[in-house]
């Protein structure tokens, strides 16, 4: 894990660690930015982590 520098420039905050937040965070890092992913619960994943399979391909959601 990267060391948190409080005054990092070129950083973006993503609020919400569900599939939308995680995807935004991943893409932002690929585009060259540091991301703070802020999630109110204890783990990221959001509602998608509760799903068994996904429509219509029935792929595992984790």
């Amino acid at each position: 894990m990267g060391q948190a520098k409080e005054t990092k420039s070129g950083a973006v905050m993503v609020v919400g660690g569900g599939v939308a937040g995680v995807q935004a965070a991943l893409d932002l890092t690929e585009l060259g930015y540091y991301v703070y992913l802020v999630e109110k619960s204890a783990a990221i994943g959001g509602a998608m982590a509760q799903l068994d399979k996904t429509f219509p391909t029935n792929d595992c959601s984790l």
Binding site: G2, L26, T29, S41
Partner: peptide
């Protein structure tokens, strides 16, 4: 990712 700092809770 070393570029994502997860701040949970």
């Amino acid at each position: 990712s070393p570029n994502i700092e997860i701040l949970s809770n």
